[in-house]
Amino acid sequence: MNQFWENEYVAIAAYYSVVILCLVVFLAVFELVTKYKNWVEIKNGNLAVAMATGGKIFGIANIFRHTIMQHDSLITMISWGIFGFILLLASYFIFEFLTPSFKIDEEIKNDNRAVGFISMMISIGLSFVIGAGIS
Rank of each mutant, 00 (worst) to 15 (best):
F30D: 07
E31T: 07
E31M: 05
E31F: 07
L32T: 08
L32G: 09
V33S: 12
V33N: 12
K35L: 09
K35S: 13
Y36S: 02
N38F: 12
N38M: 15
N38C: 12
N38H: 15
N38I: 11
W39V: 01
W39G: 02
W39R: 00
V40C: 09
V40F: 05
E41W: 06
E41R: 10
I42F: 04
I42D: 08
N44L: 13
N44Y: 05
N46P: 04
L47T: 15
L47Y: 13
L47M: 15
L47K: 14
A48F: 09
V49M: 03
V49G: 01
A50Q: 15
A50G: 10
A50L: 13
M51K: 10
A52C: 12
T53L: 10
T53Y: 03
T53A: 07
G55A: 00
G55C: 00
K56F: 03
I57K: 04
F58Y: 14
F58H: 02
G59P: 02
G59D: 01
I60H: 00
I60E: 00
A61P: 04
A61Q: 04
A61C: 10
I63L: 00
I63Y: 06
I63D: 01
F64I: 01
R65F: 13
R65I: 02
H66C: 15
H66P: 07
T67L: 12
I68K: 07
Q70M: 08
D72F: 10
S73R: 15
S73G: 14
L74S: 05
I75Y: 10
I75D: 09
M77W: 11
M77N: 09
I78D: 02
I78K: 02
I78H: 04
S79Y: 15
S79P: 07
W80H: 09
W80L: 03
F83K: 01
F85R: 00
I86H: 01
L87R: 02
L87C: 05
L88P: 04
L88A: 06
A90R: 06
A90N: 06
A90V: 14
A90F: 13
A90W: 14
S91T: 15
S91I: 08
Y92A: 09
Y92K: 11
Y92D: 07
F93Q: 10
I94L: 11
F95Q: 08
E96M: 06
F97P: 02
F97V: 15
L98V: 15
T99H: 06
P100D: 10
P100N: 08
P100F: 08
S101C: 06
